[in-house]
């Protein structure tokens, strides 16, 4: 238990998450620009613009730089014959164990950005829970989906 799971998610996830971060920053910047216009039109105090810029800067620091790095470093998983072992979380580190016998079905999904980066998210469902591994290499995800579903079929279910 002491040692962490061994597998890591794709390195490209990092780039992807940074892009998501930039998108958020972009939205904040757009809002700030809108705010600047209103400040000039109605002569609101100018420091409101500074708040907007400050938030954008914080976003760059956290959502683009810090959070994706930490998140990527933390994300680890292992899929063995008997169980799925996950570790994730920024501030709260969660370790999850899902026995293979409990798995009911496995899905992979891929949005447009994920497809561009040849990444894929895999979700593993039990009778009560859904567990996701984000941003796996799409071939790896495909392989994993097949192996989990065949392993889950072998394992006997008694729920």
């Amino acid at each position: 238990m002491e040692q962490q799971p061994t597998q890591r998610i794709s390195q490209r996830a990092l780039t992807l998450w940074r892009i998501y971060g930039w998108i958020q920053v972009g939205i904040i910047l757009l809002l700030t620009i809108g705010l600047t216009v209103t400040v000039f039109l109605w002569e609101w105090p100018w420091w409101i613009v500074l708040i907007g810029l400050g938030i954008a800067l914080l976003e760059v620091l956290s959502m683009v730089w810090l959070v994706p790095t930490l998140r990527w470093k933390r994300w680890r998983y292992d899929v063995t014959e008997t169980e799925i072992d996950l570790q994730y979380g920024l501030f709260i580190v969660t370790r999850t164990l899902v026995p293979m016998v409990r798995v009911q079905h496995v899905d992979t999904e891929q949005g447009p950005l994920l497809r561009k980066f040849r990444l894929s998210t895999i979700s593993i469902s039990t009778a009560a829970t859904v567990h996701k591994i984000p941003a796996l290499d799409e071939r790896e995800a495909e392989r994993l989906r097949q192996s989990i579903s065949s392993l889950a079929r072998v394992a006997e279910d008694d729920v």
Binding site: G89, F91, I92, V93, T94, R95, T96, L97, V98, R102, T126, A127, A128, T129, H131
Partner: peptide
């Protein structure tokens, strides 16, 4: 179904 260990 699943067990979680959480640590801040």
């Amino acid at each position: 179904q699943a067990s979680y260990e959480k640590q801040t």
